[in-house]
Amino acid sequence: MGLITNFYEATAMVLFGIGFVTLLLQKNLIKKIIGLNIMDSAIFLYLTTTGYITGRSAPIVIDGVVYAGAYVNPLPSALVMTGIVVAVSITAFALALSLKLYEHYGTLDMDKIALMSRGGKG
């Protein structure tokens, strides 16, 4: 049964869906950013899972290298690390921009902001 054996992947997919829908359908900017973060976490979970091999240890060398087969694949973890850094940066950047928008419009609702800026132009 695929779903039982691959439940990490299944969870990742569900999380990705939740994040994506939040990103698309929420009007509040903060909630959109939270959606983006959930989506990122789903991708990280998926990547970490693909690198994990049951029964092997983390690739941290303490008493010299045993043999390559004793460790899980470290590359996905490294990519996830980088991904986390990027996710943190984008969250900070997006929040800073949202703050600026809030200062100017007094709301975080994207629809209202779009309406206001259109009203301002015309």
């Binding site: 984008i90 950047f93 997006a94 921009l97 600026k100 902001i113």
Partner: peptide, 22 residues
């Protein structure tokens, strides 16, 4: 403010694109 909106849109879609490439 319109730059902030454009930048927000740009960075989110751009990062989504990089995730696909990744």
């Amino acid at each position: 403010p319109e730059n902030m909106r454009a930048g927000l849109k740009y960075i989110s879609l751009s990062i989504l694109g990089s995730s696909f490439i990744l």
